[in-house]
Amino acid sequence: MEQPPHRPAGIVTRAIAAVIDLGVVLAMMGLTYLGLALVRLLFSPQNFRFPEPAALASATVTLTVSIVYLTGCWATTGRTVGALSMGLRVVTAKGRLVPWPRAAVRAVLCVLFAFGLLWAAVDPRRRSLQDIVLRTRVVYDWRKESTNLVG
């Protein structure tokens, strides 16, 4: 039996997935901070103080972690933790996994211009600005495997 075509994901589902992914990135940042504090404690227990990261450094690392996380997830499985929990997958217009370079550009655009997601609320095909520019789409897909993604 042939798989039915996957429907494009709506703005609400995509926004919930994005919030979950933000939580994942913030958790990774928190664990990184605690790891740095532990290393500092191990090497200088008498003079220990929690690190006070500079705002610019923190923002840069957070943006970098976000971009690497999104790129890796989209290029390998088409899913982030948020997408997996909401039954979504990012695919090319032909329904295949997004190649690494395109996944990286999409990640940069999604992180730096997150407001582009809002276009999915008014687009008849539920595409964000990033989807339009990079010829990708976000579809509902509850299957576990990532080969032969969308029919």
Rank of each mutant, 00 (worst) to 15 (best):
A103T: 04
D21A: 06
P8Y: 12
R49S: 02
T62K: 05
V61F: 10
V90D: 00
M28R: 11
L134K: 04
R127Q: 14
T64R: 00
R135E: 12
A104I: 02
M28P: 13
S44Q: 01
T71N: 06
S58W: 13
R14S: 09
H6R: 08
R143C: 03
Y33Q: 08
W74T: 10
R14Q: 09
R135L: 02
I16N: 04
A59N: 14
V24P: 00
C73D: 01
I16E: 08
V25W: 01
K94E: 15
R106S: 11
G87P: 09
A18H: 03
A83S: 08
L112Q: 10
R89M: 10
T92E: 09
A57Q: 11
H6P: 07
V138D: 03
S146Y: 13
Y140Q: 06
S58F: 15
R106C: 11
Q130H: 11
L134E: 08
V122Q: 06
A120S: 14
I20G: 04
G10L: 14
R143L: 06
G72H: 07
L112R: 07
Y69C: 10
N148L: 12
G10Y: 13
V68G: 11
A75D: 08
V39W: 13
V108H: 03
L117R: 02
D141A: 13
L117Y: 00
Q130A: 11
A93Q: 14
L112D: 10
A55R: 07
L97I: 01
A18R: 04
V39M: 15
F50D: 03
V111S: 14
A57M: 09
R49E: 07
T76G: 06
V68P: 01
L70N: 02
T62P: 02
P5V: 13
L42K: 05
Q3L: 12
A17W: 02
L42T: 08
L63I: 06
R96V: 05
T92Y: 01
V25A: 00
K94Q: 15
T80F: 10
L84M: 12
V81F: 15
A37F: 02
G87I: 12
V12Y: 12
I67D: 01
T76N: 09
E145N: 13
R125F: 05
G35I: 05
L117A: 05
L34G: 06
A57T: 12
V19A: 15
V111N: 00
P101Y: 06
